[in-house]
Every structure is written in C-alpha cells, then in structure tokens.
C-alpha cells in the first residue's frame, strides 16, 4: 500500500532512522548510567554468572520448568480435545469460566480449599493441575478454530471419493487443521511455559523460584533476575523459531 520510496521519502526514511537511532542510543545510555551510578555494572556483580555451578543451578530450575510445562501441556491438550469434541452447555460454561478466573486463584484453591475436602496432591501437581485446568479451555478454542478453518468442501470431496469418515478426518481434515493451528499452539506453549513461573508462589523449584533462592544467597538481585529473564527469553524465542521452521517444512511437503 505504501508508495515505492522515491528520493524524497528515502531521504525522509534516512532522517527518521537517524533521529530514532540517536534517541534509542540516548535511552540506553541513560539506563546504563543509572545502573552504573548505583554500582550495578560492577564486574564483580556479574562474574558469578560466568561460572558453571550457578548455571547448573539455574538450568536445574529450567529443567523443572520444562517438566511442569510438558505435563501441563499434555493434560491441557487432552482436556481441550475433549472440550472441543463435545460442545455442549457444560463445556461452554467451563471454557467461559476458565477464561476469566486467574490461574493464581486456582492455585490458591488447590492449596487451601481442596485439602480441607481431603484432596491433597504433591507439590508438582498443585502447580500442574490448576495450570492444566485453565489452559484446557484455551486449547479447546484452538482445536475448534483449527477444525472449522478447514473448508467443508475438503471433507465432502474425501467422502465423495468413497473414503470412510474416520479416514477423511485423519488424512484430510486433521493435517490441514494442524497446519492452521501451529502458530496458535506455539503461542499457547509459550504462555504455558511462562505460567509455570507461578511455581514461585507454591515453592516448586522451577526457574524463577531458583532465581529467588540464588538472589537471596548471593544478594545479587537485579543480576539474578535479569539472567533468569534472559533464559526465559532464549527458551521461548527458540520455541517460536522451531515452530516457524516446522511450519515451513510442512508447507513444503504439503505441496
């Protein structure tokens, strides 16, 4: 929709770039100065993060994070599938409620309410079950959208070729649906991984909680949490990139 840039707009782009680059550099410099003034750039405060034992401890936490995320993902996807395949008043109400109630509240219910009714799960499940309950609703929405995104003509064509219904679903509808769903599934996986940081609240030793223990131990609060945030960023970016790669590969083979 934009015009191909002529000499004038090219000049304008150049000036806008130059101005915004200097504004950005100024902001970064201001931030760094603020850090330096408060002694937070002192190399001694960052050096521990160049040592293996510190990383081993953090990666240990990352392992627990991934474990909780995987368990939640499997449970939530299974629950979402059930919800998506059985659209009735109850499942719709369930999805609606779960879309609006904070996971933290569900975690608290798990911690305080259920024990007084004799339901007591190990710590790991106290984190995973509320997360799964909440994310199942999101998965259901994704699955429903995925299946309805496939042109009904595709199913009809398959049926008219004499394929049985199950075969049509398995080999015609689902592959296309999954392709449409992939970006959403990845977004969901990222959001799930982020939500496991609630382990911070229930003392499940995942990445953020380990960050807290580490910060308490070495007193390097800012540094620890910046490093922890960076680890989350790398993992989640990696997840998104992987999905793009898969999607591209799938698009090639589909032709």
């Amino acid at each position: 929709m934009f015009d191909a840039p002529g000499p004038r707009s090219r000049r304008r782009v150049f000036w806008v770039s130059a101005v915004s680059a200097s504004v950005l550099a100024g902001l970064v410099a201001l931030g760094l100065r603020q850090f330096a003034l408060n002694g937070q750039l002192d190399p001694a405060r960052w050096r521990p993060y160049l040592t293996w034992p510190v990383w081993r401890y953090l990666l240990d936490g990352l392992g627990s994070t991934v474990l909780a995320a995987c368990a939640t993902g499997v449970l939530a996807a299974a629950g979402g599938l059930v919800l998506a395949l059985r659209p009735n008043r109850f499942t719709r109400a369930y999805a609606e409620v779960m879309r609006t109630v904070p996971v933290l509240l569900l975690v608290y219910v798990m911690l305080f309410v259920l024990p007084s009714f004799g339901v007591n799960l190990p710590l790991f499940w106290k984190l995973v079950v509320p997360l799964a309950l909440s994310h199942a609703a999101s998965y259901a929405v994704i699955f429903r959208a995925g299946v309805s995104s496939v042109d009904p003509g595709q199913r009809e064509a398959g049926l008219s070729l004499g394929m049985p219904d199950g075969v049509v679903t398995r080999f015609v509808v689902l592959p296309q649906a999954v392709r449409h769903m992939t970006p959403l599934l990845v977004t969901q996986a990222v959001s799930l991984l982020k939500d496991t940081s609630l382990g911070y609240v229930v003392s499940y030793t995942e990445l953020l909680f380990n960050g807290r223990v580490l910060a308490n131990y070495n007193g390097l609060l800012i540094q620890t949490f910046i490093v922890v945030a960076f680890v989350y960023l790398v993992v989640n970016l990696g997840l998104s990139r992987l999905a793009h790669r898969l999607e591209a590969a799938r698009a090639r083979t589909a032709r």
């Binding site: 911690l111 024990p115 007591n120 499940y204």
Partner: peptide
C-alpha cells in the same frame, strides 16, 4: 520446599 501454606497438607 514447603511454605506456610503447604505444610499441613
């Protein structure tokens, strides 16, 4: 690791 909320359970 326990918290003051999880000890009894």
């Amino acid at each position: 690791t326990a918290t003051s909320e999880t000890r009894e359970p």
